[in-house]
Amino acid sequence: MSTIQDIQFSDAIMSRINEYIARYPEGRQKSAILPILHLVQDEYGWMSEPVMNKVAEILSIKPIEVYEVVTFYTMYNLKPVGKYKLEFCGTSCCVLRGAENLMDYTLNKLGIKEGETTADGLFTVTRVECLGACGYAPMMQVGDDYLEHLTPESIDEFIESRRNTVK
């Protein structure tokens, strides 16, 4: 288990962090917490305690203030996830266009249950609430991207292409 001393954000990340902090008035650096957490999650994959404590140190706030935020907002991973996190929208509009069957199809294909990660560490599949793509349903989010108008074929294609990339 790494400790806060082991965590050292890269210069590139630190310069982005300072850029975010500068968007808010002096003394209001805590405002930058959400974008900063996105940034470090992109780097570390999830919100480990040392990472959160490091963010607290940078923002000059108590660690509990970071934990409070991380546990409130659903986009932060509280445990490690696969390289590709497939987040299926499971709210009504997507369900009307077959989201439930499609997610089952994906889980079966990967041989995992909802919330689990494949043994090779590549894919995690979860169900999330409305992602604001109702007109292009069914859809899922993977990282920064939205994959819309999904079909079993496009799911197959996506999974194969990602498997090939890492081979």
Partner: peptide
């Protein structure tokens, strides 16, 4: 004008 990013909370 700045963009502020949310994190998944309706």
């Amino acid at each position: 004008i700045y963009v502020h990013t949310g994190a998944g909370a309706y």
